[in-house]
Computed example of a mutant assay.
Amino acid sequence: MGKRFVLEEYLAHSTSNVMNGITIQQRCNDKGNEAIMTYVDHVIQGFRKDGFLYILLTVAPWCRFFPSVRNVYKNIQEGIAKGNALFDSLIDQREKELDTNRPNGFIDSFLVEHKKNSPSFEKKEQLRIFLKDLLAAGTETSSSTLRWILVYLIKEPKVQQKVHDEIDRVIGREGLARLDADVPYVRAVIQEAYRVQTLGPLGVPRQTTTDTTLFGYHIPKKHTNFKQLMACAQRSKTLAQPRKV
């Protein structure tokens, strides 16, 4: 009988390494990248502890004046400031070391394209937003999705065996997974996990740029909108067992 252990840290760090590989072609746990790992851990733990309040503050920002929410809002603002400083430092470092002929990762590629096209938006601010999405939001959602997939696979051993068999047959025990790998069953299981356990049930808030009408509903300019994604993914009218993978 093996010992119980918590997968969260392993999954978070492995997905962080993937995201970091995309952005700066390094691992989060490489020497010199400790600040990135600390930031990612801070974001993930923040979601775990106060995720509901994060959503509440997005929907109703005036809630930050409530005494019970004030400290959470303060922590969020401090985290944002630390994240901005961290990403600005990363951008400055990559800009100093930039070789326009051999861009190394997403940051370098962005800087090269920005120099070529000279767009009107502020370079560092836009790049900082991309990095937040990849390193913070991308890591948390990806690691959470993997955890839920593992839960469902444990509950459904027959599905788990089919996933295992397809991976062994197509990729192999020593093979390297590729985006174009022919694994339709594995892809279907992942999509079902997305559907059953909607990680962002309200999606990302959007704001209208002008007055508009959608399906007969008038939406005024500068109105913040949310989508009820879970209601779409778990409709009992179209699915016999909407909560089952």
Rank of each mutant, 00 (worst) to 15 (best):
M1A: 00
E9F: 09
A12C: 13
A12D: 02
T15E: 02
M19Y: 05
G21M: 03
G21I: 02
E34K: 11
A35W: 03
M37S: 12
H42G: 07
V43N: 05
V43E: 06
I44A: 08
F47Q: 11
G51Y: 08
F52S: 12
P67R: 00
R70G: 00
V72R: 02
E78A: 15
A81G: 01
K82M: 12
D108C: 10
F110L: 02
K115E: 03
K116C: 01
K123M: 11
K123F: 04
K123C: 10
K124S: 11
K124Y: 03
L127W: 03
R128K: 13
I129L: 14
I129F: 07
F130T: 01
L131E: 04
D133I: 06
L134V: 11
W148S: 08
W148H: 09
L153F: 00
I154Y: 00
K155M: 13
E156A: 12
Q161R: 15
K162H: 07
D165A: 15
R169Q: 15
R169Y: 09
R173P: 05
G175Y: 04
L179I: 07
D180P: 05
I190D: 01
Q191K: 15
Y194L: 15
R195L: 06
L199H: 00
D211Y: 05
T213E: 12
Y217G: 09
I219M: 10
Q228T: 09
M230E: 13
C232M: 15
C232E: 10
A233C: 15
K237Y: 08
L239R: 08
Q241F: 13
R243K: 13
R243Q: 14
K244D: 12
V245Y: 12
